[in-house]
Design a protein around this nucleic acid. Structure first.
Lengths: 140, 140
DNA sequence: TCATATGGTTACTTTTTGTAACTTACTCTT
DNA sequence: AAGAGTAAGTTACAAAAAGTAACCATATGA
């Protein structure tokens, strides 16, 4: 066995224990904060929205829709609302005509995007590997 | 302006540019590998499955179901298949009676869980903040 | 006057999830 | 010997989420 890899595995396990170790699986809580928060922030569209707001300091609704291509008005609007409610982004409406609305990351959102980026960079580096695995597996 | 925070912001923006800068938004690709890979790996149930396999070296179907509480047989079975196809986990079936099936992280999955953990630890630390924001926002 | 732009909303359809019962084959209990 | 239990799923059906496309008010530019 490679002891370095094994060491890392043990470290990882300890972190996970710290995260979920308190849960009683005979009677699990109906709402776990980690799950709850994660399901909003790491939703597919949410991550793209947050990444783009990490690139541009502010973005208006239609610009955001252009960069997060494929998203519908409806879902974009919904996601922006929950991301605002959870404190990742801010919404500023200017009473002009036509109305101008600017979305931006909050400080909290900024701290999140930095963590998120580490994951997405890993995804980018490893996507060829995943795609190759998928091919090999057959069912695509 | 705080120059340290501003510096960090610029760094973040550069990373995002590197990730998405090549895309032509007048004619965006219908399938972006980063999106594609991310949508499997950072799915709500998938992350929980991967975390638990990062804790126990191997887990059988029903144990996994116990820890990833709330998941249905159907969805667990589906997720395990795609996670196997994408190369994160391995499935070993022992021809006993009744059949025994062991799931485990591959080396690749192990390297993923380490990245994933950084995110989920952040989530755990910050979930009180998010929940407080949500409360303040009103619509729960 | 008609088209365009803004930031959405609404009604409707399609896809994805969740629920719960069922399967196969063997063993343990009564 | 009949019935229940176990393991790892599958299947048919119901509910929830997401996607589609038309629509809204208001004002400007052609």
């Amino acid at each position: 066995m490679e002891t370095i890899a094994e060491n890392q595995r043990v470290k990882t396990a300890k972190k996970i224990e710290k995260m979920f170790g308190h849960i009683d699986y005979k009677n699990p809580p109906e709402l776990c904060p980690v799950r709850d928060v994660m399901s909003v922030a790491s939703d597919q569209w949410s991550t793209l929205i947050i990444l783009w707001l990490g690139y541009f300091e502010t973005l208006r609704f239609n610009k955001l829709k252009k960069y997060v291509y494929g998203i519908s008005n409806k879902v974009l609007s919904q996601r922006l609302k929950v991301l605002e409610a959870d404190g990742y982004i801010s919404r500023k409406a200017f009473p002009e005509v036509p109305i101008r609305v600017e979305y931006a990351l909050t400080e909290f959102g900024q701290s999140y995007v930095e963590r998120l980026l580490e994951l997405t960079e890993w995804m980018q580096q490893n996507s060829p590997k995943v795609l190759a695995n998928r091919e090999k597996y057959g069912i695509v």
